[in-house]
């Protein structure tokens, strides 16, 4: 839908734009599902596999999807990619407990009706964000608040607080990383309960079968 007005755009900027669109798709459609992807992996991944590493590998695979424009349901796409990667892991092992594979199929990625939108806008997120900001070290919190809530530029913040601009940027980077981690892992915390009823029972069943 982007039209070249003069058709003179060279290949380089064409590639850049294509990449930007792909990344925007990933940011908008896929990333909001990260907390649920983590929750899903915690249930289906072999116990000795690091969920952080696995999540990262899957996200890298997802952002590299050449046919991203054809992905109709991001949730189904994330689930399929995650499951395939776990199957790959299992296939490389010599002994795979048979009930484990059966359970893989029964674990739901999403409750029907729950979607990326509700994950993104839930009230919990606002509560989580404010608690993340409250937990920042004092100076870091001051800088971040002036930037994000008062909309001051790093230079203005530097003047007001008597810091250098690069120190202000360091505080912003730190605050951003803490918020980013907190948002990506939020199912570890209080929102887990709303989505987890079925997967939890599946996990419990798996535990019983083993015994």
């Amino acid at each position: 839908m982007v039209t070249d007005e003069d058709g003179r755009d060279d290949c380089v900027s064409e590639t850049v734009r294509e990449n930007q669109e792909r990344r925007a798709w990933f940011r908008r459609e896929i990333l909001p599902l990260e907390p649920r992807l983590r929750a899903y992996l915690r249930r289906i991944a072999p116990r000795d596999v690091d969920v952080d590493d696995l999540t990262h590998d899957i996200l890298v695979r997802l952002i590299s999807t050449p046919g991203w424009r054809q992905v109709g349901s991001p949730a189904a796409f994330v689930r399929t990619t995650a499951r395939n990667l776990v199957y790959d892991l299992l296939r490389r092992r010599r002994v795979v407990p048979i009930d484990f594979v059966a359970d893989l199929e029964s674990v739901e990625f999403l409750d029907p009706g729950a979607d990326a939108e509700t994950a993104l806008i839930g009230r919990d997120e606002l509560r989580l964000l404010s608690s993340l900001v409250e937990g920042l070290p004092p100076q870091c919190r001051r800088v971040f608040t002036l930037r994000k809530i008062d909309g001051l530029s790093p230079r203005e913040i530097a003047e007001r607080l008597g810091l250098s601009v690069s120190t202000v940027e360091k505080h912003l980077v730190k605050a951003l990383r803490i918020c980013s981690e907190g948002l990506a892992r939020r199912t570890d915390g209080h929102t887990a309960a709303t989505h987890d009823t079925r997967p939890q029972s599946a996990a419990r069943r798996r535990g019983q079968d083993r015994r």
Partner: peptide
Amino acid sequence: EVAFERANLAWERTERLRA
């Protein structure tokens, strides 16, 4: 790319704090 977009999204979302 993954790291950049994660940081990007977090930056966008913290806009909500303004409210």
